[in-house]
Write a protein that binds this DNA or RNA. Sequence first.
DNA 1: CGGGTCGTTGACACATTTCAAGTTTAGTGG
DNA 2: CCACTAAACTTGAAATGTGTCAACGACCCG
Lengths: 277, 277
Amino acid sequence: MRDAVGAGRPFTRSSHRPLAGTRLSASPLLSDRERRALDDIALTPRAVRPGDELVREGVPVDHLYCVTGGWALRVKMTGGGDRQVVGVAVPGDLANMDAYLFGRLDYDVRALTHGVVVPIPRDRLLAAAAEHPGIARALTWTALVENAVLSQWAMCLGRQSALQRLAHLPCELAVRLGTVDEGDGAIVRFDLPMTQEHLADALGLTAVHLNRVMQQLRGDGLIVTASRSVTVPDMARLRHAGGFDPAYLHLDGEGPVPPAAHGDAAPMRAAPTAMIR
Amino acid sequence: MRDAVGAGRPFTRSSHRPLAGTRLSASPLLSDRERRALDDIALTPRAVRPGDELVREGVPVDHLYCVTGGWALRVKMTGGGDRQVVGVAVPGDLANMDAYLFGRLDYDVRALTHGVVVPIPRDRLLAAAAEHPGIARALTWTALVENAVLSQWAMCLGRQSALQRLAHLPCELAVRLGTVDEGDGAIVRFDLPMTQEHLADALGLTAVHLNRVMQQLRGDGLIVTASRSVTVPDMARLRHAGGFDPAYLHLDGEGPVPPAAHGDAAPMRAAPTAMIR
DNA sequence: CGGGTCGTTGACACATTTCAAGTTTAGTGG
DNA sequence: CCACTAAACTTGAAATGTGTCAACGACCCG
């Protein structure tokens, strides 16, 4: 049984490599030189607290925020005031890629937990991408993966039952957190700082109904929930219940490019959650 | 009343500029030189017929397909065999951007109508993007817009009623087709070659229920449907019903970059549908 | 003219929402 | 460390939007 919280290599954040361990920086599409160039333009990490608004819909942003510790949520508001979570940023993720090319975003980003974000100035990133093709490529890769995740969410929202959706989400998160490798390991535990209301907002459900469905999942022994973490006794069974197939996450670097990667093309994995305080 | 079919400037496809009019090629992020480089690597246009499968889930692809005429749908299948449309490609769109960096895709792409696609070899595109920063940037832009659209769909699927979703879709399509500019013009008509079943699959509904909701929209005078086209008597009213705000489409080039664009940085607009046969 | 796709209807089942309490848990300040 | 308060989680009963099943009608193309 692996554990995303306690275990994992310690998350070293020498101030010279603020992006180390980050999904973007760990991309095999980057050369070491490019990786360094990225670290060079990153600003000094900033602590965030639960509920902090990193980005507000419609308000100009000129930084990309790379979440190196804690979680953040991307949220859209419907005209009627309903909330829909359209993205979850776990350690290693970019919270607002769109800021790379869009002046203003059409969603909010809020910190879900205490955490750390590394701001990356848009203009310097644009310059870096222009100079280093690998950076441009890694950014596109990131956008395309987000795309694939959103497509999957759309499929779940449109065509799966509440139970399937709720089963699907932890499967995805476990993989993205690096808690479980592609093979469906046995018993897995990880932090899940989302409240039931957050989960409902992500899955297009009511908090009330989500609660009931979650009880069902618990009753079936598919998940065990502690205070703010989940244990999955049998990953294979949960995956089956949620119709989960990790292919869409494109973890295997089955990319087209026999990458220009030389040096530390380490297998990508999210940095373990590094809370503040 | 503008009309996307009959009207519009004729779609000239001099074999030397196969991508002219395309969203990618029209990007203000491209210099003329880069635009030419794109055209140079494009292969000769290929005619497709309704139902043709451009891409199949899991099968390796090494071309991006730019739809220059007709429509194509991106479709994901659920484990239980249900269909979810996760993307609509109208003339000017890339049908399978992910092929740029992913070996295999996690969705199918099928031609919805007779049409024309311009294949772009992945490896040559990668090389071109490495050489021309503007191309890399335009590709990322494309991916980010797709992202924004998917987020919006997720919000609709998760939090809007059947009626709102059905009202929302034509609003989006009208804008993407260039049938209506940002301001909400008055009366608008355009081709909508999707069957009710396609629409249902896009909106996460049953064909039966979609039919009923559509009757409601018709009854309210919000849309008028002809054989395979829609007329929107009052765009503002339909937008209101669907909670549509075009901001997420990022049509206004409110980008960060006082672009390197010189020369024909024409306002982007989809090429009018150019059917074959 | 015929066959198949597409659209339309009706009656009914059911998943999910709504409303309106409770109960537990976590966070905060004394 | 306890008390207190707000946030999170549960529960029940009733309303409703959407799905299901099954059939029929209209249209288009060959």
